[in-house]
């Protein structure tokens, strides 16, 4: 690693740690209300603030690492859990559950939702992968198949909208735009370990992922079982994204944005890129959480914030020539 690169990595790490600290201090500190009883304060911190923080951290890490991995595995810089349709499968199942679960079963929704999202994410990944292999066998095909699946899920969700009551609709809308406030310790205790394992596995694949840059044959020649790696990476990403969606709904853009900006700074080595993506994604979402804690008045849908931040950044990255077809 060259000197400049080391500086860049150090810089990124410092920035990330700084924003983590700001996030933690901010959110736990903002509890404010100095006249609240200590007991209540503790309750708010333990039951609301810490789960919020953990959710932001885990979801951010899961989405941006998966985005980075997918971009390399599919050899397409445009890949993102949202764009290639993994999120949409999870969203569809979530929508079905939110709108169709009968009244008596709502108590179990907390268990059902993460499980359902998960199955949704895995299923859509499987269908997309199969379609892509059968139809065209190239990495562009995965994107095309993903768009097809997203469109279909979107259409089904739109149909569901027509037939549901106002309350369920509000829930769903919030959920589809992403919200960090839907979690509790239970969901976290299921999703957290899954995300941790899935992200760790992606970091473990980093060395092999590096060899995919020269294409399939070159990777095979240098000892990487490309088919196995592709399959494993897709499954692991589906697990991470499924867990993330079950915690916070569908959050746009993080998976596309974070890796791209990082590549501009530290280059393409996945051994650095993947862990830093995890950290940066985590701190980005924690900042988003902090920003909606500070504004307080309204709870901002996360996708709204990430898209507002992400749009201009992505345009900047485009202008710098990082992203070309």
């Amino acid at each position: 690693m060259t000197g400049t690169k080391r500086t860049a990595v150090t810089l990124v790490v410092i920035t990330v740690l700084l924003s983590l600290v700001i996030g933690v201090v901010g959110i736990v500190g903002v509890t404010g209300l100095s006249d609240t009883a200590a007991e209540l304060k503790q309750h708010i911190i333990v039951q609301l603030q810490i789960p919020l923080l953990l959710t932001a951290f885990l979801v951010g890490a899961a989405l941006s690492t998966s985005g980075a991995t997918l971009q390399v595995v599919l050899r397409n810089p445009l890949a993102d859990p949202g764009i290639i349709g993994i999120t949409s499968g999870a969203s569809l199942v979530a929508a079905l559950l939110l709108l169709l679960t009968p009244q008596w079963a709502t108590a179990y929704l907390h268990y059902l939702l993460p499980l359902g999202c998960f199955i949704g994410a895995l299923l859509s990944t499987f269908i997309i992968y199969r379609l892509a292999r059968k139809l065209l066998g190239s990495s562009t095909a995965v994107i095309l198949a993903g768009i097809a699946i997203s469109t279909l899920s979107g259409a089904i969700i739109a149909w569901l909208y027509m037939f549901s009551d106002a309350n369920a609709l509000r829930n769903l809308t919030f959920w589809l735009m992403g919200s960090l406030y839907q979690t509790n310790w239970l969901i976290l205790s299921v999703g957290g370990p899954l995300i941790a394992v899935a992200v760790a596995l992606q970091l473990y694949f980093a060395g092999d992922l590096n060899k995919l840059y020269a294409g399939e044959l070159a990777a095979k020649s240098s000892g990487v079982d490309v088919d196995k790696l592709t399959e494993r990476s897709l499954i692991v990403c589906a697990i991470a994204v499924g867990a993330a969606v079950s915690m916070a709904g569908s959050i746009a853009f993080v998976g596309l944005l974070v890796p791209h900006i990082l590549r501009l700074i530290i280059g393409h080595n996945n051994r650095y890129l993947l862990p830093l993506s995890a950290l940066s994604g985590a701190s980005l979402l924690m900042l988003v959480a902090l920003s909606s804690e500070v504004t307080r008045v309204i709870t901002l849908p996360v996708s709204m914030v990430t898209a507002t931040l992400g749009g201009p950044l992505l345009i900047w990255a485009l202008a710098k020539g990082q992203i070309k077809g």
Binding site: R75, N210, Y213, A214, G215, A218, R263, G267, H268
Partner: peptide, 15 residues
């Protein structure tokens, strides 16, 4: 061999 990523030659070779 295709690569649509904008890596530097040095980084590419080092992998």
């Amino acid at each position: 061999s295709e690569s649509s990523f904008h890596l530097s030659v040095k980084e590419y070779l080092s992998f």
